[in-house]
Design a protein around this nucleic acid. Structure first.
Lengths: 276, 276
DNA sequence: TAGCATATGGAACAAATATTCCAAATTCAA
DNA sequence: TTGAATTTGGAATATTTGTTCCATATGCTA
């Protein structure tokens, strides 16, 4: 039976199915396809970011041979095969805008909302794990661990995070003080040499928070930022910048990832101090 | 100075340089480029596997705007920028599971902690989705939607949740007031017929919160509870009880699931009121 | 408000990439 | 060795994707 008549089964839907099919084809292939199979097996992760020409060159076969390989794997061509890996590489493109539209149309009550927020939270946490800048994180911990007093600043949506940080710092006996926005009264006179400001703000960035941060910087007090983007105005004012992206659901953005980052920071700092 | 005359510096050679340049551009950009910057900052890992059209759509700008963005970042075009990420992302699949494993194995103590908290958060969210009592949830929404004023009470670990609820209620124009523990001063005189108390507390249960709740009940003001167990002392005092269990890591308990429940409650109540 | 500088979107164009096709090469069986 | 069946490579083509350009829109300054 010629290879191009191999009963075409459905294309693999997951990377695992792909692996299985690769194994199933195993030996019985002609030489060039064999080469493709073995090169692919060893370079699964490259498929997402390579062209056919590159993969073919890697397998040391002409592009047309590689195309045949894609077809006997069950795909219509290279593009379709690549799509599988691109999606696996950057998992899930759930389109929240349309889901929200559906939700509004559909029956769904509060439990449906809950499901959406749980999902958004999970994705935010996954995103955090994938995108955290480890260097920035340890730098932040280091700076904070050396602080005489940690001034936690966060208003509006960041306020719950700030208060949570203050709570955990207190539990861990780390000297920290929560700056409340209440009454427009600010405590910047409390900033002393050797202290550190931990500033938290997300778009639209709070004026007060930025102003306290720049004030601190002007006085030579280090600033650690917890914000949403490196391009945040807070980033420029800071000595260490931690970014956390929350997946939003409709107009609403939760705090799962931010809270996870906050507790990590607090516990890491508490631990570092305990050891010193 | 028009953006396309920004002195063209050499293109970033590493992802870190890229980040730095992104941060340096910061504010001064026109709207469309700002959108590009934001979207890119949050989706660095997708660049390797996406087309300009996809990235542009994600940033909600036309492809030509995205091209301009690539150019002011110092690249000749999208292809060149993408090459940086395709090469940088040689290391396997940044699939969540393996990334988590890397973090746990990683050198930095802080990254390890983060991995643990992320994992705990995810598990808490899953638990919440599985165990939610739908009847109690809709009952809580109903009671809150009818309230004249919602009094949000939560101290210590529950305080961040309470302040977050107050924030979201305000955003949704739901009359709500946050009872602060500050100064031992409590606002129970503010409780009026037709109001509702939303009380949040976890073991070890806060005296003050319980006392406000029982006070409210004595006056015939309904109480909605957000707590950790049906057997919580708060449960007995309440007209609707929502329970949320957080998975703890070591001695530390995060708030992912609680926050998810809180935002659900707030949005559901806001929506219900909007419709009425 | 006029006039200038800048930003924007889309259509036209260019380049890269995927895909097909078929003549030539190879293999295998008789 | 011959012929049929299969595999192979590359040239031709189709499709997708990237890039440029410019007319129009927008915002700013005087």
């Amino acid at each position: 039976m010629p290879v191009d008549e191999i009963t075409s089964i459905a294309a693999p839907q997951t990377v695992d199915e792909f692996r299985a099919r690769l194994a199933a084809l195993g030996e019985g292939l002609p030489k060039r396809l064999q080469q493709c199979a073995s090169h692919v097996a060893g370079n699964l992760d490259r498929i997402a970011v390579s062209t056919v020409a590159e993969m073919a060159a890697g397998a040391d076969v002409p592009p047309s041979a590689f195309m045949r390989f894609c077809q006997i794997m069950g795909f219509s061509g290279y593009s379709e095969m690549q799509r599988l890996f691109r999606e696996a590489y950057a998992p899930g493109f759930p389109d929240y805008a349309t889901r929200l539209a559906n939700l509004k149309g559909g029956a769904g009550g509060a439990s449906r909302l809950l499901a959406e927020f749980v999902e958004a939270g999970r994705m935010s946490l996954e995103g955090l794990a994938k995108s955290v800048d480890e260097a920035a994180l340890s730098q932040a911990v280091e700076v904070l661990a050396r602080a005489g007093m940690i001034h936690v600043v966060g208003l509006r949506r960041a306020y719950p995070v700030a208060s949570y940080l203050a709570y955990v710092f207190e539990k861990m006996s780390v000297p920290a003080m929560l700056h409340e926005g209440a009454g427009r009264l600010d405590h910047r006179h409390a900033l002393r040499p050797g202290d550190v400001v931990l500033a938290i703000t997300f778009a639209p960035y709070s004026e007060e928070t930025l102003s306290i941060a720049s004030d601190a910087r002007a006085r030579g007090v280090p600033v650690v930022a917890l914000t949403d983007h490196l391009s945040s105005p807070l980033a420029r004012l800071s000595d260490a910048v931690l970014t956390v992206q929350e997946v939003d659901f409709g107009a609403f953005r939760s705090l799962s990832a931010t809270i996870a980052m906050a507790i990590t920071l607090a516990v890491a700092v508490g631990t570092a101090r305990g050891q010193a």
